[in-house]
Design a protein around this nucleic acid. Sequence first.
RNA 1: GCCGCCGUAGCUCAGCCGGGAGAGCGCGGGGCUGUGGACCCCGAGGUCCCGGGUUCAAAUCCCGGCGGCGGCCCCA
Length: 433
Amino acid sequence: MKIPLEPLRGFRDILAPDSTTLRHLMSLFRELVESYGYEEVIPPTLERFELFAIKSGEEIRRSMFVFRDKAGREVALRPEATASIARIYLKHLRAKPKPLRLYYIVNCFRYEEPQRARYREFWQAGIELLGAEGKVADIETINLLINYYEKIKMLDKIVLKIGNIGIYRSMFKHFGLADEEQDHILHLMDKSMYDEALSHLEQRGFNELANKLQELWTTNTIEEAAKILSTINKEAEKQAEYLIEITNIIRDIYPNLALEPDISFARGLAYYTGIIFEVKVPGFPVSIAGGGRYDNLIEIYGDEHVPGVGFAIGLDRTLAALKEKGINLGIERREKATIVLIDEKYTSYAIKLQQLLTSKHVVTDITTSSRISKTLQKIYEKGTRYAIIVGEKEAKENKVTIKNLESRKQVVVQLDRLKKVEKLSNIFEQKQI
RNA sequence: GCCGCCGUAGCUCAGCCGGGAGAGCGCGGGGCUGUGGACCCCGAGGUCCCGGGUUCAAAUCCCGGCGGCGGCCCCA
């Protein structure tokens, strides 16, 4: 019986060098956030469907991997990590002193038609800062996100869009717009359907609100916007000033960052309540990371009010953008060597040599060949720099022949001397024997 | 869930108004018995995406499905 070899639709086999870079992106993220005091949470891949279904309709179900397990439970592969983090907080972490700093690196699943930079399984790395409100927490979060892109040499390639949903929440509240109406208007804004949003409001008799919004969206700077908002009420003005303040702080920390404060920016997510942000790469079709403040999210799952702020990085998309921009992360490469064993009689000699080299962190493999000419070529094409020839001549005298395949220089050294050097390249730097 | 283009060797593809499955690159071996990238020779490798239909005959024409790329819906 023959099995089709292609992975399932929308799934991928990730091989080197992509696999190497992807894991590297994860390591850098882990290193960064751990040094800021974040602790890893590893949530289960499979959760109850209702965990994700809360506050979302059939549309969400369509794009999730949902099925019944053997006991008949309705379960889903996680489409994101934040819901699981909220659940984990309520189950295990309520009594912990706030704020809580949590991070995750997980694969997520969405049942969508595959298209550019969108797959059915993808990797997200993110943080959640729970139980902290205000400027410092918001800045900490945004700083970590930018800092990450700085570490992967993308600071000059990204645009950080930043807005404040709080502005709209306070305006809507002032004019008495119902929650569902609020989400609908934000949704239209997210899709840049501003005219539809305005006519929708006018139909419902919110003419003054519509006028104010229209005025707001024609402003060129957030300072102008703040002036208009000051004519509504103190809270709306405060929210606009907060956005200005946050923007100024980020500018101060990252003077070279392309920062795009946007008063009309609204991420579709129903649960955002304050600062929102998104990382885009000009020319790349989708945003590669995003996040914001969500002070009501935990309340959706439990009865406790816990403010939170966080972000998620699309690692696959970041990798794709990295490749598109031709950025080389310069992942530190260990020296690589291949032992060419000419006569299998000296197998134990070769294995001992391999142990010696690997203990010096040289990546070492063994090939047996009596035909050296083609073997050397193959080793070189694989990207291995050193060939170490082991045959009767070497084994009998406790020597090895080391050949640098790039310079084509070759030296014969005593095993004892090899034991003393730190790197193979050192042998070639010194005078040859 | 919807739409468009595509699917032939490991890769890139030709063949497609019906009748023989092919090229280049790559891979393996040899020329060269312990030292390279060139060159020459030889070789392996295929359910022509799958299933059905039309036909004496289908890689080729028709239908359905699956998959790839991209767009829409959606994007938590």
